[in-house]
């Protein structure tokens, strides 16, 4: 295989604006309910009563996920037709629309919700890291959309080198051992895995 591609997200600066999700939706013409890039809010904590005031001990952050183009993609393993496949050149997992029969097994197989079934198309849709844009020498739509410049893409080894602090597991993500994902995060201060601050 060539170089495995992946995403980097600077989660500490992600404000959950969903611009990436909508840019992706527009670029890929997705119907309502089908979102190839998704943001999930995680929040909690509480307020301590101090005298007649409340002191916040609150945390909140967003987790952005499209597809992690995993090393061990369960969706590919479980797909009965071979429509879901991992590109041997760059490790990008995508679904061949000419082969997908819409059995939805892949949507049961991904802990990140990456494969999304389109009722209107009768087929699964998912992030292919904007293969068409990459072929034209452009960046994926989500990357260039982010108002905070918090999303990057590239060979995962290079991203890891560029962001030595980044991790695959932030609090709220499924266990990375399930599929060995290729998205790394600079953790939000409250999302450091194993302990929220």
């Amino acid at each position: 295989m060539g170089q495995q591609l992946g995403f980097y997200l600077n989660q500490q600066f992600c404000m959950g604006c969903k611009t990436c999700a909508v840019a992706c939706k527009d670029k890929n013409d997705m119907e309502i309910g089908v979102n190839l890039r998704r943001l999930t809010e995680v929040s909690g904590g509480g307020f301590a009563k101090v005298g007649d005031t409340y002191v916040p001990e609150v945390f909140a952050y967003w987790i952005g996920v499209s597809c992690n183009h995993c090393d061990h993609p369960k969706c590919v393993e479980n797909c009965p037709t071979g429509a879901m496949h991992k590109n041997p050149e760059d490790g990008v997992v995508s679904v061949d629309q000419t082969k997908c029969i819409g059995c939805r097994y892949c949507t049961w197989s991904c802990p990140y919700g990456a494969p999304q079934y389109s009722e209107q198309r009768g087929k699964t849709q998912k992030c292919d890291m904007c293969a068409d844009y990459r072929a034209q020498g452009k960046d994926p739509a989500c990357v260039t959309s982010c108002p905070m410049r918090a999303i990057e893409w590239g060979p995962i080894d290079e991203l890891k080198k560029k962001h030595p602090d980044a991790v695959v597991a932030v609090h709220g993500l499924p266990d990375p051992l399930m599929t060995s994902p290729n998205t790394i995060y600079t953790s939000h201060k409250s999302a450091v895995s194993g302990g929220r601050k």
């Binding site: 604006c17 611009t19 909508v22 670029k27 452009k138 260039t144 108002p147």
Partner: peptide, 27 residues
């Protein structure tokens, strides 16, 4: 058929003028 925002990269002199989710959904 598609809405893209500012394609220019950020530079030291100027930032790209990237639209938010609202502008992106205008279709």
């Amino acid at each position: 058929t598609r809405i893209e925002s500012d394609p220019d990269p950020d530079s030291a002199e100027q930032m790209a003028l990237r639209g938010c989710l609202r502008g992106r959904s205008y279709r």
